[in-house]
Design a protein around this nucleic acid. Structure first.
Length: 175
DNA sequence: GGGACGATCTCCT
DNA sequence: GGAGATCGTCCCC
């Protein structure tokens, strides 16, 4: 089990979102019911886990960028092939996918009911949230590259680099 | 049916 | 800091 530490938002009419080209067999989950998983293969080797954040079938999702282990540390270390207990173990979306043993079969899987892959309330007080621009989407429109749609929990080392672009969330920030 | 590309990671310099 | 790995998906012939 892991605690989600850092996420990125991908929205409708977002030039960086996989749903930007409409519905395809791969991206269909994004346009499906919210709370379902969207897992896809990136660069032929990395399984990326997304949570569909969509209510109206418009296509929106949240990419899980980093986690911290809660239980099953040994299993995670075995899957990652690294006997370490540091952020390096889970500080990237591809690493999270590997640590959870994901495959594209998990796409469409509901995350709000028991069944192997599930998202729960962490029950931890999140006092501060950091925001920053997303990374790895150089192909997107400038206004989408610069949009502050990357979110991380403050005061934890278990977040993926780069951290220096993250700033505390202010009340002026809106969706 | 074929080719180009990608929400990344790792190793090497 | 930079480039290669590696393959499913999508678009165009």
């Amino acid at each position: 089990m892991t605690f989600i530490r850092k996420v990125e938002a991908y929205r409708p009419n977002d030039s960086a979102c996989h749903g930007r080209s409409g519905v395809t067999p791969r991206t269909a989950p994004i346009f499906g019911p919210g709370g379902h998983a969207y897992v896809y293969l990136c660069y032929g080797l990395h399984m990326m886990l997304n949570i569909v954040a969509d209510k109206d079938g418009v296509g929106a999702a949240v990419l899980i960028r980093s986690c911290s282990p809660v239980t099953g540390l040994e299993t995670i270390q075995e899957r990652r092939g690294q006997k370490i207990d540091k952020p390096l173990l889970l500080n990237g979306p591809g690493k999270v996918g590997q640590a959870l043993g994901l495959s594209t079969q998990w796409s469409h899987h509901p995350l709000y009911s028991p069944g192997g892959l599930e998202v729960l309330d962490g029950g931890e007080d999140v006092e501060k949230v950091l925001v920053g621009p997303r990374v790895g989407i150089d192909y997107a429109l400038p206004e989408h590259v610069n949009a502050l749609w990357r979110f991380a929990i403050a005061n934890t080392p278990w977040i993926s680099a780069p951290k220096n672009t993250l700033k505390p969330l202010t009340s002026t920030h809106s969706s």
